[in-house]
C-alpha cells in the first residue's frame, strides 16, 4: 500500500495537480509515526510511510494547509473522511484546495498494546488476523484483534465518505458496531457509581491538552480555554472537580459535531476513555432526534442546530424519558 500511495502522490505532484502531500513519516520509533507534509517526490521517497501504526487523523491539518497556495493531497482513512466532511460542513476547509485519496482501512494498531507484548519493535506487518512483529529480540506473532485501537474494535464505518479517488476498494458502513455498549453500561450505573467512575478516570488528567489539540472538532480560531476574556483561562481551580470540567465542557462544545473518530482517546497519555463522553452525546442525539452521524455527508444540518416538527419537546429530554 505504501508504495502505491507514494507512486500516486509522486504522479500528482509531477503533473501539477497538487503542490504538497499530507501523509505520515516515522517518528523516533516505528510505532509513533507522525503527520508530515512532503513537497517533492524526493521528500516522499525519503520519509513517507504508511503502515498499521499510522492511526492519526490528518483532516484537521487541512484547515491550515488549505489556506496556502495550491492544492494539498491528503490520504484519508474512513474515519478521517467523516472528520473532513464535518469540517467542510463548518466551512473550515476549502474543498477546492484539497485532493483526497481515500484509503481502505481494516483497523489500526494500538502501539501500547503491541508494546506490552513485544519490546524493541522494529516493524509490524499485518497478515490476515495476525500481526508479525519484528523486534530487536526476535519475531513475535500477535492476534490482530487483540492489538487494535479501541475505536477500531467497534469500527462504525469502513467507508471513505469523501474522496477524489480511491486506492483499493471502498468499504461499507457498519451499523452493528456495538460502539455504544460501554455507554449503556455507564447509563445502567447509579449516579453515584457513574460519578465515581468519571472521577477515577478524569483524576488522571494532566491537562496536557493533547485531546483538544488533536480533535478535528476542536478547531476554533481561539479556544475558550485560551481566551483571556472567557473567565476560565488561566484560572486556578477552586477544587479538584473544577479541573474535570475541562472535559465536560469540551464534550459539550463538540456535541453534534463529533464524528467519533476516537483521536481524543488515542492520544491521551493517561489513557482516559474520553470518547465515551462524546459517544453519550451521539447516542442521545440518535435517541431523541433520530439517527445522525456527523460527517456522513457534507452540508448536513446537525440536529442540535436544526429544528424539525418531529423533535421531542425539551421537557422530555430533561426527564430523560422516551419520545
Amino acid at each position: 500500500m505504501q508504495d502505491t500511495m507514494m507512486k500516486r502522490a509522486s504522479e500528482l505532484l509531477a503533473d501539477g495537480t497538487v503542490v504538497r502531500v499530507l501523509g505520515w513519516k516515522n517518528g523516533e520509533f516505528v510505532y509513533d509515526p507522525t503527520p508530515a507534509v512532503f513537497d517533492s517526490a524526493e521528500a516522499l521517497a525519503q520519509d513517507f510511510v504508511y503502515h498499521d501504526f499510522c492511526g492519526s487523523n490528518l483532516s484537521k491539518y487541512l484547515i491550515e494547509l488549505s489556506r496556502l497556495e495550491g492544492k494539498t493531497l491528503v490520504f484519508l482513512k474512513p474515519c478521517d473522511s467523516y472528520s473532513l466532511n464535518q469540517l467542510l460542513t463548518e466551512h473550515r476547509i476549502d474543498r477546492e484546495k484539497v485532493y483526497i485519496i481515500g484509503i481502505p482501512c481494516d483497523g489500526k494498531l494500538d502501539p501500547d498494546t503491541v508494546r506490552s507484548s513485544a519490546e524493541g519493535i522494529l516493524s509490524a506487518v499485518t497478515e490476515g488476523d495476525s500481526v508479525q512483529v519484528e523486534t530487536m529480540y526476535g519475531n513475535v506473532t500477535l492476534n490482530k484483534a487483540d492489538c487494535l485501537l479501541e475505536r477500531c474494535t467497534v469500527c462504525k464505518s469502513h467507508k471513505v465518505v469523501v474522496f477524489d479517488e480511491m486506492l483499493g476498494e471502498n468499504g461499507t458502513v457498519n451499523p452493528d458496531s456495538n460502539r455504544f455498549d460501554m455507554v449503556e453500561k455507564l447509563e445502567a450505573m447509579t449516579p453515584e457509581e457513574r460519578y465515581e467512575f468519571w472521577r477515577g478516570e478524569l483524576s488522571r488528567c494532566i491537562r496536557c491538552n493533547a485531546c483538544r489539540n488533536v480533535c478535528p472538532a476542536c478547531s476554533c480560531e481561539q479556544c475558550v480555554f485560551d481566551s483571556p476574556t472567557s473567565g476560565v483561562s488561566q484560572k486556578a481551580a477552586a477544587d479538584s472537580f473544577e479541573e474535570n470540567m475541562f472535559h465536560i465542557i469540551r464534550a459539550f462544545h463538540v456535541a453534534g459535531r463529533c464524528t467519533d473518530c476516537g483521536e481524543c482517546s488515542r492520544v491521551c497519555p493517561q489513557h482516559i476513555p474520553l470518547h465515551l463522553l462524546n459517544r453519550k452525546f451521539i447516542k442521545d442525539i440518535n435517541t431523541y432526534y433520530g439517527e445522525y452521524q456527523a460527517g456522513a455527508e457534507a452540508g448536513s444540518r446537525a440536529p442540535l442546530v436544526n429544528f424539525t416538527m418531529d423533535d421531542c419537546e425539551p421537557n422530555v429530554i430533561y426527564k430523560g424519558g422516551s419520545k
Binding site: 460542513t89 463548518e90 466551512h91 473550515r92 478547531s219 476554533c220 480560531e221 481561539q222 481566551s227 444540518r301 446537525a302 442546530v305 436544526n306 429544528f307
Partner: peptide, 20 residues
Amino acid sequence: MKCNGCSSCANVCPYGAITY
C-alpha cells in the same frame, strides 16, 4: 477574531439575521 465561520449561528437564527 474568535469566529470560525462554521455557520452554526446562522443555522439556528430564526430571523435570518446572520450572513457571512
